[in-house]
Design a protein around this nucleic acid. Sequence first.
DNA 1: CTCCTTTTGTGAAGATTATAACATACGCTG
DNA 2: CAGCGTATGTTATAATCTTCACAAAAGGAG
Lengths: 209, 209
Amino acid sequence: MKSQKIPEATIIRLSVYSRYLKQLEKNGLITVSSGTIAEGVDGSPAQVRKDLAYFGEFGTRGVGYNVSDLNRYITKILGIDNKWNVIIVGAGNLGSALSQYKGFDERGFNVLALFDNDPEIVGKKAGKIPVFSAPRMTSFIKENNVEIGIIAVPAPFAQDIVDEMVGAGIKAILNFAPRVISVPDYVELRNVDLAVNMEVLTFNMTFQK
Amino acid sequence: MKSQKIPEATIIRLSVYSRYLKQLEKNGLITVSSGTIAEGVDGSPAQVRKDLAYFGEFGTRGVGYNVSDLNRYITKILGIDNKWNVIIVGAGNLGSALSQYKGFDERGFNVLALFDNDPEIVGKKAGKIPVFSAPRMTSFIKENNVEIGIIAVPAPFAQDIVDEMVGAGIKAILNFAPRVISVPDYVELRNVDLAVNMEVLTFNMTFQK
DNA sequence: CTCCTTTTGTGAAGATTATAACATACGCTG
DNA sequence: CAGCGTATGTTATAATCTTCACAAAAGGAG
Ligand SMILES: NC(=O)c1ccc[n+]([C@@H]2O[C@H](COP(=O)([O-])OP(=O)(O)OC[C@H]3O[C@@H](n4cnc5c(N)ncnc54)[C@H](O)[C@@H]3O)[C@@H](O)[C@H]2O)c1
Ligand SMILES: NC(=O)c1ccc[n+]([C@@H]2O[C@H](COP(=O)([O-])OP(=O)(O)OC[C@H]3O[C@@H](n4cnc5c(N)ncnc54)[C@H](O)[C@@H]3O)[C@@H](O)[C@H]2O)c1
């Protein structure tokens, strides 16, 4: 791979390609062309090839790509060829739902525990995932080699939890609280804001088309 | 507003500005500069002004923007100056959590009902939101003027539900199922894919920096 | 072994988006 | 009411991302 800045959009698409390839693989398909991938993910063949070209040459001219090889390459690129340990803070409606999400496990994300500060919830389980008390978070992160934290507490508490996570050595955070969060630049942060997504929909309904 | 294509990134930022302005308004702030907004949302002042400039002139030179006026304008732009009716299909872990999400109501999204095909769940309530049987969806959409549908069923069923929603006259769909979904181009669609978000994190941890 | 079809990989062109820079306008002070 | 400081609105510049077009390579047919 050439050392170069990779567009985030490319990474997002690679993840979608990977999901689609997995499906093709299950269907017993051996080879696939950029055109077929493009159809399957609602994109363009040139885009598919360009995205892959950032990382190497994975295809055979005149033939296409070997489905399972390509998926293995992409999986490696995305960094999910091995497992990641994850915790979720906030065992309310959203946190509990996330802890049950099969899509995490399937893609190599291992949710070890939930954390909450409500004594009514602490000690219980959400499915198979235990809920621990919030003050235990830091030591748990250190002892269990947790790299990724998910924020599912109410917005006013989000930054505090994030700071604690960062202090404990977490490397990446997925934030669901509708707040702008600060992290040092060696920590990866992504925000998932559902109201924002809804508002993009309503904007498009109201203005465009 | 000049008729022009607005970048989606601009809409996303406007939504975040709006959330931040609401906070400032609650704190009693009267006027705010593009610089202060930029700080609050972790952006640049030029970007803030540029985003607003697509839609008009909302500020006063040498002064800044009136906080509540600006927020009202943005709210209008985003199309959330009035309420939208929403349904959620799939009353499992995720669907139930979403139905309880306060952030929807706060921003003008009115979740009227959940739909599911599991007889164990149908007839119950998630908080105050009733769960109806899946076959009732089409008539409910028509009778209650539902414009937005949320997909929270397992991936293999997502396209079918979407088709039914579209047939019933739904105008926009927020999809949580990890599948590429097709809709006619007069229907707005957005996908929220959590595994993809996680994979962007792991990519950045593995490659960049 | 050569030709022909196919599909990749890529450099160049085009489109879009972000950043920077500055002239313009507003309000305040004296 | 004139001059000054400040923050907007906008034009110009730069950076980024996508699309296009085609040469290069592979495999298969004759
Ligand atoms: N419910 C949803 O579908 C949804 C969707 C998108 C975003 N969100 C956001 O996710 C967050 C959680 O939403 P929710 O609906 O699950 O709320 P919730 O009230 O059901 O759950 C929040 C949980 O966080 C716990 N908590 C509060 N402060 C804490 C702290 N300092 N340390 C540890 N735990 C703490 C509470 O005890 C509670 O169990 C909110 O920021 C919300 O805006 C929720
Ligand atoms: N759990 C999460 O946190 C999470 C996160 C992201 C995405 N998702 C996605 O959201 C979807 C739902 O996930 P979940 O964890 O809530 O699963 P779940 O199994 O808890 O819930 C799915 C619900 O859908 C219902 N259902 C199935 N087929 C249906 C149909 N044809 N019509 C109506 N209802 C039907 C089921 O009865 C069930 O109640 C899945 O596609 C999943 O990949 C879930």
